[in-house]
Design a binder for these strands. Structure first.
Length: 539
DNA sequence: TGGAGCACTTAGAATGGTTGAT
DNA sequence: ATCAACCATTCTAAGTGCTCCA
């Protein structure tokens, strides 16, 4: 049973995350396996036998030949620069232009290899699976405060070419192989210290119980920290998750006051305060992200609320019969496009005009504020409140509202589930969750269309035609969602924002089995909510 | 007060596995 | 039995926000 009192009483545990922690350390990817002699790389039409290091990097590129990445010039340039660093002096002397490199033979080799793997017998696949299970059993768990807990990512990330999202300036750079000498191990003092691979030692072994990670290293492309951490099903993560929803729940009690306050700020004599008021309004109304500053030219050019630039919004005094329209068009997290036309209050509109006065398109819209300032202000309104809490709060509130609106007791199970899906859809739209349309999208449309016409012509039964037409309609519906070949995602990301207690309560109220809405992984993650008693329910 | 460093959550793509239609 | 569509899982990039230091 989930013990929430740990947090409520405590907070007094001085920020300690655990008392004892024991694990086996991370699992390293297999060594590089050299290509067979009959698989060749060609330069300028001539076969070239590469050194081991250069060959490995070449295979990273060769494996991606069919991917869009390899058509992008910055990917090609970054790859080629980093590849040349791995070459011997002689190789570097010889291989000077990527356009003269021919990886197709290597590419074909890997395609064949994956075909072979697919064609393996059931038994062979089973053996492979067993081996994998054994590794998971050994490395995939740790012992934290006497409990066996699942680890989220126990494998060290294998080397490869960096796949940044959107127009990332570093795409294609070589992500180097991590050595044990670069890894810091975190575990408790008296525990069995993980053993480094033969002939190696760890960078460092530490015993810091104020952090939750088991191992860490610094990645070479962007210099970011990487961590081995626990699975969401663990108690440690579950408590943190619960805590997040508790803050959102507290906001419910305060939100009207906060809204009144930021509306007041719109008429403040200080520009800074006005900007704060309008930014908060966007964060609240549109569920925008906070928008921290980012290192220019080190990352893709994406923004959130505080980092919006003048060029990202267009003001329309009147549009589509509505007054005071703001048109948003910018790239957000993961370079997902945010496009929205929103009617706003006259005061907001006037303020936006003011903020944009005498500025260039590339100037900051909210030039007097940043996320730190905003969060400091929010924290004064309510302890623990930050910009991101609004996303959790508004997503959860939307789900609850939609569920109330769309579900009735007399519905069949199927109808109830449809309502649930629709409610989730509303949240996905609010949070602008999108994913790439499946590559097979166009094709499957065409296939279906062909089938329908084919059957009609053959005079098959009406019911078959009807069923197919329904499928087609469904696809077409998805089609209308499409914007820049993205579709509204009903995937897993929404689960980060929706208080599971809302869903659990809904299931109980309408007699829907929990496994209809949560799969195994989700049930593990939300075990704390599923086990809860009635009084904990109301969001 | 601002920036670097660090730890943690959130995110879509890729991959892998299952299912259901043919 | 096959194959594609669907769904779950894995992977790791890309955010948020706090702390520490000058």
């Amino acid at each position: 049973i989930f013990v929430k009192t740990v947090w409520e009483e405590g907070n007094s545990n001085n920020g300690n995350k655990w008392t004892t922690l024991e694990h086996k350390g991370p699992l390293f990817p297999p060594e590089y396996e050299p290509l067979p002699n009959n698989v060749t790389f060609f330069y300028n039409g001539n076969p070239v036998k590469l050194s081991l290091a250069a060959e490995e990097v070449a295979t990273f590129y060769a494996k991606m030949l069919d991917h869009e990445y390899t058509t992008k010039s910055s990917f090609q340039e970054n790859f080629f620069t980093d590849w040349r660093e791995e070459m011997t002096v002689e190789e570097r002397e010889q291989i000077k232009k990527l356009s003269k490199c021919d990886f197709t033979h290597i590419n074909k080799y890997f395609l064949e290899k994956s075909e072979e793997k697919k064609a393996m017998t059931k038994e062979q696949k089973q053996v492979l699976k067993e081996e994998n299970n054994k590794l998971t059993e050994e490395y995939g768990f740790c012992e934290l405060d006497g409990h066996r807990e699942k680890i989220g990512n126990f494998r060290v990330e294998p080397p490869g070419l960096f796949r940044g999202r959107g127009e990332h300036p570093k795409m294609g750079k070589l992500k180097k192989r991590i050595q044990p000498e670069e890894i810091t191990i975190n575990c408790s003092k008296g525990s069995n210290i993980p053993v480094a691979p033969k002939g190696h030692k760890w960078r460092k072994v530490q015993h810091d119980n104020t952090v939750t990670w088991l191992a860490s290293w610094v990645e070479n492309v962007q210099g970011n920290f990487k961590y081995v951490m626990l699975n969401p099903s663990s108690k440690l993560k579950g408590e943190k998750d619960w805590q997040k929803y508790e803050v959102a729940r507290k906001l419910k009690l305060k939100v009207e006051t906060i809204r009144r306050q930021y509306r007041d700020d719109w008429k403040n004599r200080e520009m800074k305060t006005r900007q704060r008021g309008v930014a908060l309004y966007f964060i609240d109304k549109l569920a925008l992200r906070a928008g921290n500053e980012k290192e220019e030219s080190e990352t893709a050019d994406t923004v959130g609320c505080c980092s919006l630039r003048v060029e990202h919004i267009t003001l329309h005094q009147e549009k589509g019969g509505q007054e005071f329209m703001v048109e948003f068009d910018f790239l957000g997290k993961d370079s997902i496009r945010y496009y929205n036309e929103v009617p706003v209050e006259g005061r907001v509109f006037k303020n936006l005009k003011l903020f944009m006065e005498n500025k260039d398109p590339e100037d900051d819209l909210f030039d007097r504020i940043n996320t730190t300032y905003l969060n400091k202000h929010l924290n004064q309104s309510m302890p623990g409140l930050t910009a991101k809490v609004f996303r959790t709060f508004n997503a959860s509130t939307t789900l609850q509202e939609q569920l109330n609106k769309l579900t009735t007791a007399d519905m069949s199970l199927e109808e109830k589930l449809l309502s649930y899906n629709r409610a989730n859809r509303a949240v996905a739209i609010l949070c602008n969750h999108q994913r790439a349309a499946p590559k097979t999208f166009e094709k499957s449309m065409q296939n279906l269309q062909d089938k329908v016409t084919g059957i009609c012509m053959n005079g098959k039964t009406e019911s078959v035609v009807k069923r197919l037409e329904e499928q087609l309609k469904k696809l077409q519906l998805q089609m209308t969602d499409r914007e820049e070949n993205k579709v509204i995602a009903l995937g897993t990301s929404k689960l980060n924002y929706l208080d599971p207690r809302i869903s659990v309560a809904w299931c109980r109220k309408f007699n829907v089995p929990i496994e209809k809405i949560y799969n195994k992984t989700q049930r593990d993650k939300f075990a704390w909510a599923i086990d809860m008693t009635e009084e904990d329910f109301q969001f």
